[in-house]
Write a protein that binds this DNA or RNA. Structure first.
Lengths: 210, 210
DNA sequence: TAGATTGTTAATCGATTAACAATC
DNA sequence: TAGATTGTTAATCGATTAACAATC
């Protein structure tokens, strides 16, 4: 229950720093600086240093940061220095794409079970994961001690599914349905609203046209 | 080039208000209030009113907001009171899911062309959209006056694709590759990083465990 | 050593919240 | 009218930026 004090923009940038550092690592760089990270992410060096300072001292004055080391430390902070088991609810087009998505695994997340209501889907297998009926959800979550879930169901059933997940013991939900979800304290919800993202673009592009 | 002064959190919430209002409309509600909207979105009534006040006066004191009317006004502000043509670059699993995704259309966006480099994919059709070779990109964007693009290619080629899109005249890019993209002034970029979303969850859930 | 870059404090900037007169 | 709710101003809160001593 600690770390309630970390501003969420900081936490979000941590993920972006990690992504950039991983990129630098694959390109063979061994060290970097707050300035170089800032340039890549279009922010300021002061902000990079301030963000990291919430969690400790990771660099050396006059030298910068060791890429591999900082990657390790960020993964530790974000708790992706282990593999999280994740379940998927809703095996529609988006759900199937997420099951096949390789980048989750690479970043410490593994979709290990999928649930749907459709009789045609139940029993079938997508990317090696068997689609199960909803009634098995609570059992699987409990037995395998799963904490995270991805919701990719139609908006009108998303809240119901979330209630079910919370009762089963899920503590983090990534929601792709375009609905604001409510959950008890202690459960974290993140929403990915694809249409909203496009709306941000149309606003800016449309405004520029005038 | 106006409206540079709207804070981006405000703009983002506009999309969330719109989503909620559309939900209320399907449930038959004809009016609502800043308080009810705030409750649904877990914010405050003052913030709802302040956000809307950036754009005009949409409610009536003592009464509230007419749902249908406010939907219209928000769509006008976000420029989704018309249909935007959008192209997709990268027809992998995620790209295919996006082509099949119905909620874009419902919100004012239509994926009308798809591009990929893979010879096996080129010429095939997904959800009624033919996959074209990259060399046709510039031509299609120019002829059909397309402003928006979705990028769903591997991270190592995402910047190159973006450069190509900008040269072709694209003004807004929704990027699904886990890479920070750079573009000239006047081009808006939005990034959707799915792994980063899960990392936010693992941070919170992991911190709660300690 | 000289140059570079950190971690951190203080100053600035911007966004959220509270309060209330105006109005339906 | 009385109760409700807006739009808006002023007060608060929080996040970003600038600056610099410490250090490699």
């Amino acid at each position: 229950m600690k770390n309630q004090s970390i501003p969420s923009p900081v936490l979000w940038r941590l993920s972006l720093y990690l992504r950039q550092l991983e990129h630098l690592a694959t390109k063979g760089f061994e060290k970097t600086s707050s300035r170089k990270l800032a340039e890549a992410l279009q922010t300021t060096d002061a902000q990079v240093r301030k963000d990291l300072a919430y969690f400790g001292q990771f660099g050396r004055p006059g030298v910068g940061y060791r890429v591999g080391e900082l990657i390790g430390q960020l993964r530790h902070i974000l708790r992706t220095d282990r593999l999280w088991k994740v379940i998927l609810v809703g095996v529609g087009d988006l759900g199937r794409a997420l099951l096949r998505h390789k980048s989750f695994r690479r970043n410490g997340f593994e979709l290990i079970a999928a649930f749907d209501t459709s009789p045609e889907l139940i029993g079938s297998s997508v990317a090696g994961v068997t689609v199960r009926p909803m009634r098995q959800l609570s059992d699987v979550v409990g037995k395998l001690e799963i904490k995270l879930a991805v919701v990719a169901v139609p908006p009108d059933v998303a809240q119901g599914v979330t209630d079910l997940l919370c009762r089963a013991g899920i503590l983090g939900v990534l929601n792709f349905a375009p609905t604001s979800l409510h959950a008890p304290d202690g459960v974290t919800i993140r929403q990915v609203d694809l249409a909203a993202q496009l709306e941000q673009l149309s606003f800016h592009v449309g405004a520029a046209e005038d």
